[in-house]
Design a protein around this nucleic acid. Structure first.
Lengths: 228, 228
DNA sequence: AAGTGTGAAAACATTCACAGCA
DNA sequence: TGCTGTGAATGTTTTCACACTT
């Protein structure tokens, strides 16, 4: 029953995670007026191996020219299409503390397909304030807003203790993609996709590698640990 | 020349990335007064398979009791030790816009081994302000501060265009672990460890999965996509 | 009886190396 | 000639299934 055996291949998760990097780098190249790029050059700019880049791109289709390279514009468009960025993604942010403000005013947001349609916070001191032209409302207003301009991606930027309740509210109005900045594991029904971003996890991973470096140095067994 | 063949095993990166989750969940259990936990219970609370949890923990050593489970306190301590959180990690944040403020006041920071020793921003309007008791200074003051209380982890929360210069300044004073929130790929010397956290990458990955869900639904080929 | 710790198997991801095309 | 696209080889991660210990 599922169609397009040639067009709609399976793209590995590891590849999907790198496509945004490729896209960002291609956009920068395009700004600089670069028209064409080889896998070797693009890979170097992104910080991966050229074989990996070519393998990744091969999952999208065949958009390079043998002996020449990739046309920057074309490739950027195809990656955008693969990621779904040619569609419009209305986003709501819940929790307008420092982090919520930072996220709302983050430029990368607006540029590519993402559009902030709602900002929510139950703090009365924030109610009615506008950030990037969007008013902050209590979370109770979410269902009403959802009718006017339905949110497809919800961003949780509240403290950990509020995160599950906020998540439930988002799921209740039909949001199936959630980006969670709160340090909490969320329980969601099947079919809802949650990604978590956490500062302290990242710091702890850095600490682990830093510790290894200092241990190795103390051993006289210096080994460079570089990852990006 | 490298010692401790039994104690200092190689811990896989995939495992290291999950240890902070385990630790957070264990801390919550400890707060709730739970003394002992099985791999099945802990795995469920974290959102992984029990076999994966046991395999991960086996890399740290043998801290469980067969037929019983793991003692919450002990396991938390051993994970902390493996991650290097029993040491003190002085952190500097560069770029004190909304994001920098959010990071500086983030609670998870202080709790576990991380200590903010410097906040930097070249905006004269911010100079001298205090956040969490630490004054904001111009980046030029970094070398002087470094003598008094040396930074081991640098956090970059500046706009993309400033990121490489900031990174160079950090590396110049001997920082070898960097957490980069700017949407830019940093070039660093061998031995310097960079991790990047990027909102728009995360949003794009969500968009990809959301697109797949809607395509699959349109096909009548519904497939649940849940990841966390 | 219950649940850890771990070899072995399976799945997944990266890298190599080269055929094939412009 | 130069560079892409891709099978085959290698490396890593996850899962299975059960011996072993308390």
């Amino acid at each position: 029953m599922s169609a397009d055996p040639n067009l709609r291949r399976e793209i590995p998760d590891a590849t999907v995670a790198r496509l945004p990097e490729y896209l960002r780098t291609l956009s920068r190249l395009a700004e600089d007026g670069v028209l064409s790029v080889s896998s070797e050059e693009l890979a170097a700019a992104v910080g991966v191996r050229s074989a990996q880049l070519r393998k990744d791109l091969s999952h999208l289709g065949s958009y390079g020219v043998r002996g020449v390279g990739y046309e920057v514009e074309t490739l950027a468009l195809e990656i955008s299409r693969a990621l779904g960025l040619t569609e419009d993604w209305p986003v709501a942010i819940v929790g307008m503390g420092n982090l919520g403000h930072a996220l709302a005013s983050y430029s990368g947001f607006v540029t590519k397909g993402f559009r902030i349609v709602g900002l929510f916070d139950d703090d009365p001191a924030l109610a009615g304030q506008h950030v990037v032209g969007v008013p902050i409302r209590p979370l109770a207003d979410l269902p009403a807003c959802q009718v006017a301009d339905p949110v497809s991606i919800g961003v949780i930027a509240t403290p950990a203790r509020a995160a599950q309740a906020v998540c439930d509210s988002l799921v209740a109005v039909g949001v199936t993609s959630i980006l969670n900045f709160a340090p909490a594991v969320l329980t969601v029904p099947e079919g809802v996709d949650v990604r978590r971003v956490d500062l302290s996890t990242e710091l702890q991973i850095l600490a682990f590698h830093a510790q290894r470096k200092s241990l190795a140095a103390g051993d006289g067994d210096l080994r460079s640990v570089v990852s990006q």
